[in-house]
């Protein structure tokens, strides 16, 4: 999506342009509507939602649902709000992202600049691992985490997310380093730099773009994960997505829609902020994940 000056444009009358813009705007509404509805209704008292028009702006503005969602809504059996789970997620995401990204960078470096007999096979195995349905690993993973004493812990989730993120992080760095001139590595070798010196002094300083792409990709995936969270987490480690689902689908009591919406936005906020701040890199990650090789 580089802004190359392409001219595929249809030559059309004003009427054509109006139709085009109308369609584009209708789809904008389609994509924005759920977010708008969640946001406005999270600022309404519950009665107003029950009685009324979901598209209308709040008549009585309130931030109470947000406070409830954050600090005292009933989640599962405890009235803790989402706050502890948000923190769980942070403690899970940060190490998982950093470890898998670092390993991916080193793997990409080895696979492109120090490839050896069999390294292509390793890459093939890593690549294929990106696509497995995670249901296939749930049963043995639960047992292994138990054996390692990591069942129900944040460390366990970090391990799981690191392992199953390795394929993509390696793929991203491998493709990026493949385009990195090998002559630079050779020049550094002659200059006497060793394996890690070359990585730190020569490749790493040029890796910022791909590191950003990878970190965003991993952050989004790990933050948004539900399956591993619901399968392997205990109270101390339940991540935000699972907590949100518990909040929304708890069968007891009155359904506090406004609190649910506030909670949903809270769960979406970190990835949304990342997207808004660096959407370009986010898209690049999606593309890199889709177009391999």
């Amino acid at each position: 999506m580089s802004g190359a000056t392409q001219d595929n444009a249809l030559k059309g009358s004003g009427a054509t342009r109006i139709i085009i813009y109308t369609v584009l705007i209708l789809f904008m509404i389609f994509y924005l509507l759920p977010l708008y509805v969640m946001l406005t209704n999270s600022l309404k008292p519950l009665e107003e939602i029950r009685g009324g028009d979901m598209l209308a702006l709040p008549k009585n503005w309130t931030i109470e649902p947000w406070r409830a969602a954050w600090s005292y809504a009933q989640i599962g059996v405890q009235p803790t709000g989402l706050k502890p789970y948000f923190i769980n997620s942070i403690f899970m995401v940060v190490p998982a992202v950093l470890i898998s990204t670092s390993l991916g960078a080193l793997n990409g470096y080895v696979l492109t600049k120090w490839s050896f007999r069999g390294s292509d096979l390793v890459f093939g195995l890593l690549l294929l691992a990106c696509f497995i349905p995670f249901q296939i690993v749930l049963i043995p993973m639960a047992r292994i985490l138990g054996i390692l004493g990591l069942a129900g812990t944040t460390s366990g989730l970090v391990l799981v997310h690191t392992i199953y993120g390795l394929g993509f992080t390696t793929l991203f760095f491998r493709n990026y380093y493949a385009a990195f001139p090998t002559e630079l590595v050779r020049a550094a070798q002659i200059d006497g730099a060793g394996f890690f010196q070359i990585f730190w002094r020569i490749l790493a300083p040029s890796s910022a773009p791909i590191a950003v792409v990878t970190i965003i990709w991993q952050f989004t995936n790990v933050w948004n994960d539900f399956l591993f969270g619901v399968s392997f987490a205990d109270f101390d480690s339940i991540p935000m997505t699972v907590a949100l689902n518990n909040l929304v689908n708890s069968s007891t009591g009155v359904k506090e829609y406004n609190v649910h919406f506030a909670g949903a936005i809270l769960a979406a906020l970190p990835t949304l902020i990342v997207y808004i701040v660096s959407g370009r890199y986010f898209v690049r990650g999606l593309m890199a994940g889709a177009v391999k090789g």
Binding site: R186, A187, Q189
Partner: peptide, 20 residues
């Protein structure tokens, strides 16, 4: 011997200057 131990220096086609 490793390249760095051979007491050689090399000039590359692409110059291979460290960009950073």
């Amino acid at each position: 011997l490793h390249p760095s131990k051979r007491d050689i220096a090399m000039v590359f086609q692409s110059y291979a200057l460290y960009p950073n």
